[in-house]
Amino acid sequence: MSRPEDLLPPDLFYNDTESAKYTTSSRIRQIQASMTHRALELLDLRQPAFVLDCGCGSGLSGEILSQQGHTWVGMDISPSMLDIALQRQQTRPEQTMRTRNGHTNGNHELNGSDELDDNEDEDDDDDNDDDEEDQMEEDLTSSTLGPDGDLMLLDLGQGLPFRPGSFDAAISISALQWLCNIESTHNPTQQTAESRLRRFFDTLYVALKRGGKAVIQFYPRNETQRKMISSAAVRAGFGAGLLEDDGGTKNVKYYLVLSVGGGDITGVVRGMDNVDVEDGRAIREARGGLKGTPKKGSKAWVMSKKEKMKAKGKVVKGDSKYTARSRGPKF
């Protein structure tokens, strides 16, 4: 699987042609839509909310936020993507009319120029998602339409310029893996991926209100990258959990669910079907009993001490079956 992150920095990769390709491909639109719906399900927003969309691209995810009646602010590093987002917003009144007329196929009709539909050769980060189930069945017609999103040109790795407690929630769909490659044109000092991620998560933590939640969907390259992203979030103070959809298959999707104010994140998936909770804390605790220094006074501890002393060249009594055995009662 080729990864577009390897080719060019995001602002150069998503040039006019690539952005248009991305936005008009019905397959990508469908995958993005289903992931956004999943993220919204995890956020569980009961009221019209003020939502931040990190890496909004051409506003595919924002469109769904609007449909659900939320107000959103989107940010992206690619000017071409934002340009398309603007064009889409300007033509939106007509689009919503069309969505209302026949909404079952909504994601195919939204854009007039779908000639790239059947282009299967795109090397995109979504390449492994061919058999995605259609989750667009939800009723989009009845909901009140939220306003257009506000767009900003911004590098997530430079941090978010918001005052504390601004947003109810944040989503990010297929964006964070871009932050892991440091060859960005806006990163001339070559800051490490860790420091850019830390900057992002720290400022995101501040920008969310207390009790706010963030769902971040991303495509980690490998285990190391997945851990790097989740640990950066935990270090910023978030209560974090990683939801794996279609785990073990090539369609696997990772959703990092974050909550401000820490606490138990497992409540998010309570009541959802087909979700197993694997509590990392319990696992770590169980493992902690085996690893690390042995308990003081135990046989293992005495043996390790003797070993250490021997290594220092000291005279140590030989080991026997009586070593570290407690003496029995005297009488």
């Binding site: 506000d150 767009l151 900003m152 040109l153 911004l154 430079q158 806006h186 990163n187 000092t189 800051q191």
Partner: peptide, 14 residues
Amino acid sequence: KEGVGNFLLPPHLV
């Protein structure tokens, strides 16, 4: 520009 704010910082301010 066109309603989109440019919040990219130049290198010396990052």
